[in-house]
């Protein structure tokens, strides 16, 4: 009796979860399908339950691949800005997290508390003064202006510190006896051991800058400098004159990420839930 009860409940719960999952995936599935119908039709009807199967066409994609150089410029910009930000922020943050975990130095506790407080300063108050600073530094409408303020990643520092605390300190002593410098220890021995945390943070930073909107919106001015979210936002007009690029283009920003997610799920999950390391 009890066992049957559990089984029934399991079936009900499975069905509920299946429905919830379908609702969550519905917007993605429908935009992928809609990218294969003429944008005029989507414009007229919105996303509808009665999908016009007879209108299926590849025209949006042929257009974007042959006619829209602009879109590929944005794609390239987003790709290399994200890549550069991953490398720079990982490099600097991992050093700090490692130093906080492995060395007892004067002021390390104060430094840590200070970082906690700085973490609480919302970007919205920094936004205008940072914008002014960028104007003074002549960095408006430059990639450097987009990248520089993003290199500081206190969240990543926390994550790396937490991870480094779990690494064996004996390895450091052994390496010292072998004559390795402190920097050699970090780059040749400890950094490779931090691999999984590096992967998780690479995904957090990468996804963050791939999807970042507000700061590039302030800094970048000319169309050919735009990143993907900025470029796509300019196409999002009520007139719908560029919807073929908008729809197919949006789909092509999601799909690579979803594929990466399927292969590296574990790292995605630990990267995106980094705030919970303490809880």
């Amino acid at each position: 009796m009890k066992k049957n009860n559990n089984k029934l409940l399991g079936v009900v719960a499975t069905v509920v979860m299946a429905i919830v999952s379908l609702i969550a995936l519905f917007p993605i599935i429908s935009i992928v399908l809609s990218s294969f119908i003429p944008s005029g039709s989507l414009m007229r009807n919105g996303i509808s339950f009665s999908f016009p199967w007879d209108e299926l066409t590849l025209s949006n994609y042929t257009y974007i691949f042959t006619q829209s150089a602009e879109y590929w410029t944005w794609y390239g910009n987003s790709l290399w800005i994200s890549a550069l930000m991953i490398v720079l922020s990982l490099f600097f943050s991992s050093m700090v997290g490692y130093a906080l975990a492995m060395y007892d130095f004067k002021g390390s506790n104060i430094f840590f508390v200070a970082v906690v407080f700085i973490l609480m300063v919302p970007f919205e108050i920094l936004m205008l003064p940072l914008f002014r600073l960028m104007m003074d530094m002549m960095l408006i409408d430059t990639y450097l202006g987009v990248i520089l303020p993003g290199i500081v990643a206190p969240v990543a520092v926390f994550f790396f510190r937490q991870y480094a605390l779990g690494l064996p300190k004996e390895l450091m002593d052994a390496a010292r006896i072998d004559g390795s410098t402190e920097y050699g220890i970090f780059f040749k021995i400890m950094l490779p051991l931090m691999g999984p945390s590096l992967a998780a943070m690479a995904i957090l930073q990468g996804l963050g800058s791939w999807n970042n909107f507000l700061w590039p919106l302030l800094v970048l001015r000319s169309n050919d400098m735009f990143t993907l979210p900025l470029g796509l936002a300019t196409l999002l007009t009520p007139y719908g004159n560029n919807y073929d690029v908008l729809i197919a283009g949006s789909v092509m920003t999601i799909i690579p990420i979803v594929i990466l997610f399927i292969f590296f799920q574990r790292y995605f999950i630990s990267g995106l839930t980094v705030g919970g390391v303490k809880g």
Binding site: L22, W210, L246
Partner: peptide, 16 residues
């Protein structure tokens, strides 16, 4: 499946 929406940007999600 429930996690996948977190991979989209607000701009793309908002457009949908």
């Amino acid at each position: 499946s429930l996690f996948i929406p977190a991979l989209t940007s607000t701009i793309v999600g908002g457009m949908i």
